[in-house]
Structures are given as C-alpha cells and as structure tokens.
C-alpha cells in the first residue's frame, strides 16, 4: 500500500477501532440474546402493531430469520454502519481541507486524481471492514444460539449491509470531494440515509406507495428479505453502482476545483 494510504489509516485508526468495537458489541449482544429471547418473542411480536412492524421491516420476530432481521439487520445495525461510513468518509478530503492539513498531504508527488483515489481507497477498505463485522459475527455466533438460518442467507444479508455502506460512502465522498465542506457532506449523506430509511418504511404502509421503495437504498439491501430468500445480485449491484458513480464523480470534481480556499 502507498505511503498515503498507510498514513490515512494511521490517522483514522482511533475512529476505526472505536466504531469496530461498537458495531461488534452491538452485534454480539443482540445475536447472543436470541436464546433467552426466543421464549418471549411471541409476546413482543403481539405487542407491536402491524403497521409499526411493516415500517421497521419486521415480518415476524418469532422465527430466527425474523429475529435477526428485526435486530441486527433492521434499524440499529445499518444505522451504526452507515454512520461509521459517513464519519470516516468526510475524513478523506473535507476534514483536512477545513483544518488546513490537506496542504501537507497534497505535497505528495501524486496527481490530484491519484491523491483523491488513494484517500478514498484507504477509507473504502476501512469502511468495508467495519460493515463486514456484523456478518462475520452473526455467522460465527448464530449456530451456537439456535439461530438456524442458512449461512448463505446470512451472508447475502450481510453483503447487502456492506453494499449499503458503499452506497452512502460514495454519495458522501462525492459531496465532500466536490465541495471540501464536511458539514455539507455529512448533511447530504445523513439526510439521504434517513430519507431512504423512511421511504422504504412508508412504501409498505401507504396505499399506492409501493413504488417509493425503489428510491430507497434500504430496499436494495433488505427489501428482498435475504434472510429468507438468499441472494439477489441485481439489487446488490444497484448499491454498488451508486457507490462507484459517487466515487468516480468525487475524484473528477476534486480534480477540477480550487483546494483550501
């Protein structure tokens, strides 16, 4: 790896470790809890109104797949992973640009595009590792606590979570690289994440609103019910496509503007 990629990792180390611990703790606690939860599941399931369950993309909390979906893959899991992706992504260009450190990063003998690409590569690898943590832990813990969901289905949902992170990474990178403004990049990335989540939620509960789900990245991640139905490559590719377009657009726009004005 290039000196710049290693430097980027060194500067992001604390943030990456912190998010990794948080995501791992969350996943481990919820997944392990299934054994003691199973008995009370029916109770919880009955307590939640149908509309709320639809909004939270919870079909049935009583089945192992339903439980995993309701805990790790529904709200908090994607929330943590997407937040980590946003926070790390604004460290590529906007943050050093705002605090002035970018000048001494850019004295690297690299073209503008190579510079942006290497900053992105370092963050892409970090975010991918963070987004993969839930999948790895669920695959490891599930058999021992009586969650009998096929490993392939867990893998497909987990890859979808990684794809979701890539999607928002790409969007946030594009805004940050094009403008150099951290607040704006976070606002756009975070705003679109919240909007995407809500769109998928309301598409299931309002009449004639079903088409709205196609606008939501969350639909491509979890709307296919991967824990029951397995792999849906086209949906996953849609998430990857958004990420790739965002990355490419960010690199091109960074190459065309003034830095540190």
């Amino acid at each position: 790896m290039s000196p710049l990629v290693r430097k980027t990792w060194r500067d992001d180390r604390r943030a990456i470790i912190g998010w990794a611990l948080g995501i791992a703790a969350f996943t481990t606690i919820y997944t392990s809890f299934y054994a003691s939860f199973a008995g009370a599941a029916q109770l919880k399931d009955d307590a939640l109104p149908e509309g709320m369950k639809n909004f939270l993309s919870v079909q049935d909390m009583t089945s192992p797949a339903g439980y995993l979906q309701a805990t790790v893959y529904s709200l908090v899991g994607p929330l943590l992973v997407v937040m980590a992706a946003l926070v790390l992504t604004v460290r590529t260009i906007p943050r050093p640009e705002e605090d002035g450190g970018i000048e001494l990063l850019m004295v690297n003998p690299l073209s503008r595009r190579a510079f942006a690409a290497q900053r992105l590569l370092a963050t892409f690898i970090g975010v991918t590792a963070l987004a993969a943590i839930p999948g790895v832990l669920v695959l490891a813990i599930a058999p021992g606590v009586g969650i009998d969901v096929p490993a392939g289905n867990i893998a497909s949902a987990s890859v979808g979570l990684v794809g979701l992170a890539w999607c928002y990474l790409g969007i946030t990178f594009a805004v940050g690289a094009a403008t150099g403004r951290r607040g704006l990049a976070l606002a756009v990335g975070g705003g679109l994440a919240v909007t995407g989540y809500i769109l998928r939620g309301i598409s299931g509960i309002i009449d004639g609103g079903d088409w709205l789900k196609w606008l939501s990245p969350f639909h491509y991640f979890i709307g296919t019910d991967p824990l029951h139905t397995g792999w849906h490559p086209a949906h996953l590719l849609a998430l990857v496509a958004v990420g790739v377009v965002g990355a490419a657009a960010g690199i091109v726009m960074f190459d065309r503007r003034d830095v540190g004005v």
Binding site: P96, G100, G101, I102, L104, L105
Partner: peptide, 9 residues
C-alpha cells in the same frame, strides 16, 4: 505552508 496544520496526531 504559511499556515501550518499537520494531518494526524
């Protein structure tokens, strides 16, 4: 640079 800011800690 005239305004020195170092990346990282």
């Amino acid at each position: 640079p005239g305004e020195l800011a170092f990346p990282g800690r």
